[in-house]
């Protein structure tokens, strides 16, 4: 295994498949201008888990051309290969098996089986079938799914190590569209629930964390910001702020005012 071994006994650590992470922000590595910007944004985000895609090698590639895994070394980051672009369970399985070989018997994968190119919504029936097979083959499956609480529970029961409902369509930046569904998923879960997709800006990430999500996975919100490195830092703080607010427990909402200064002893 080449995965990073994050520090144990962290306060309020995110635990996935037996490993602990200090950061609850997971980031993708697509859509950046170049590998240097990718590296700087990932570093500014503080993320320890980073997703990558598995694709055909360019045959015309110049020797010595930098590789993504040179700037994001697997001994520093937990690499999470995805099955993006797969529209069938079979394609997703094939991609995961290639990723396992590519990363030296790496077992942690992000499963996504897409239903259509316009919405990039998951094909949940194919996702369930693929998840079941991957778990049988010894993979640790973090699974992208819809915000359907019943399907989320089924995926947990199949043995997925994390369930990752969308907040809104991939790359849409619309924020958490159905807080009550996300809340229901969290309340019923025994594995980490990570909002994956749809976050647009820092407040969206904070809202997801305040709902009680265990983490947020995002890519476009950082990569398509005017200044991706600064947005990566904003997201890091939003995740920390949202998590602390969740743990602190917010005050009740009231319809009318409640004075903050004591009413006794006023001079007027």
């Amino acid at each position: 295994m080449t995965q990073a071994q994050p520090t144990q006994s962290l306060p309020d650590a995110l635990r996935i498949a037996g490993r602990s992470y200090a950061s609850r922000l997971l980031v993708g590595t697509g859509k950046y201008k170049d590998l240097e910007q990718t590296r700087r944004a990932v570093e500014a985000s503080g993320a320890e888990i980073v997703t990558v895609a598995v694709r055909r090698t360019n045959l015309g590639q110049k020797p010595g051309e930098p590789n993504l895994l040179d700037v994001l070394p697997p001994d520093r980051y937990t690499i999470l290969p995805n099955t993006a672009g797969c529209y069938s369970a079979e394609d997703a399985l094939r991609t995961c098996r290639l990723a396992r070989e590519l990363l030296d018997d790496h077992r942690l994968v992000k499963l996504e089986v897409l239903g259509d190119a316009k919405t990039l919504f998951p094909d949940v029936t194919a996702t369930l079938a693929a998840a079941e097979q991957l778990v049988k083959e010894g993979f640790e499956v973090m699974v992208y799914t819809s915000d359907d609480p019943i399907i989320a529970k089924r995926l947990e029961e199949l043995g997925c190590v994390a369930v990752m409902p969308l907040a809104a369509p991939i790359g849409s930046g619309l924020g958490v569209q159905n807080r009550y569904n996300i809340l229901s998923i969290i309340e019923n879960a025994r594995v980490p629930i990570i909002v994956d997709a749809g976050v647009g800006t820092a407040s969206d990430a904070a809202i997801a964390m305040e709902l009680g999500c265990d983490g947020v996975l995002m890519n476009t919100a950082i990569a398509e910001a005017r200044d991706p490195v600064l947005m990566a830092s904003a997201m890091k703080h939003a995740i920390i702020g949202g998590r602390e607010a969740f743990r602190a427990g917010r005050m009740p909402r009231r319809r009318y005012a409640s004075a903050s200064s004591p009413l006794d002893g006023t001079v007027v």
Binding site: G28, T29, G30, K31, Y32, T38, T51, V52, A53, V54, R55, R56, T57, L59, N67, L68, L69, I79, P81, N82, A84, R97, L98, A99, E101, L102, L103, I170, G171, A197, L217, M218, N219, T220
Partner: peptide
Amino acid sequence: DIVPRSRWPEVHLNGGDRAEIVRAIGGG
């Protein structure tokens, strides 16, 4: 079929074989 890296030196190719060579690239 996936061929483990350790076996690349011993696997000989035949005409008509189809090889897929993949790597990790940026993705979300």
